[in-house]
């Protein structure tokens, strides 16, 4: 499991403009982080995915994008796992 997540994170971090990624379980605990992403952000990323899922509970969880002038954080929940990818614009 850990090896598989490591491989997925390596693939993500090698994508263009990506400088960090973090994976979180349904309890907000960090499954793994790579690049500039900190493991401490796992809880808040899980909480953001939880809050967004309340908006339209009848639909699949949305893709959440938090953006500033130069960077964006893309968060998506799939089943019990939430992934966040940090990208430069």
């Amino acid at each position: 499991m850990e090896k598989h997540i490591e491989r997925v994170m390596d693939d993500i971090i090698s994508s263009p403009n990506v400088f960090g990624c973090v994976f979180v379980d349904h309890q907000g605990l960090c499954l793994g982080a790579k690049g500039d992403a900190s493991t401490e952000s796992a809880g808040i990323i899980g909480a953001i995915a939880d809050q967004a899922a309340k908006l339209e509970p009848q639909n699949q969880p949305p893709i959440i994008v938090v953006e500033d002038d130069t960077k964006r954080c893309i968060i998506h929940r799939n089943g019990t796992v939430t992934g966040a990818i940090y990208k430069t614009n």
Binding site: G20, D36, S38, S41, V65, E67, D68, D69
Partner: peptide, 15 residues
């Protein structure tokens, strides 16, 4: 979201 990467309250849009 992640104070080390995104300064607090720096974001402009959310989608």
């Amino acid at each position: 979201v992640d104070p080390t990467v995104f300064p607090v309250r720096s974001f402009k849009t959310l989608s």
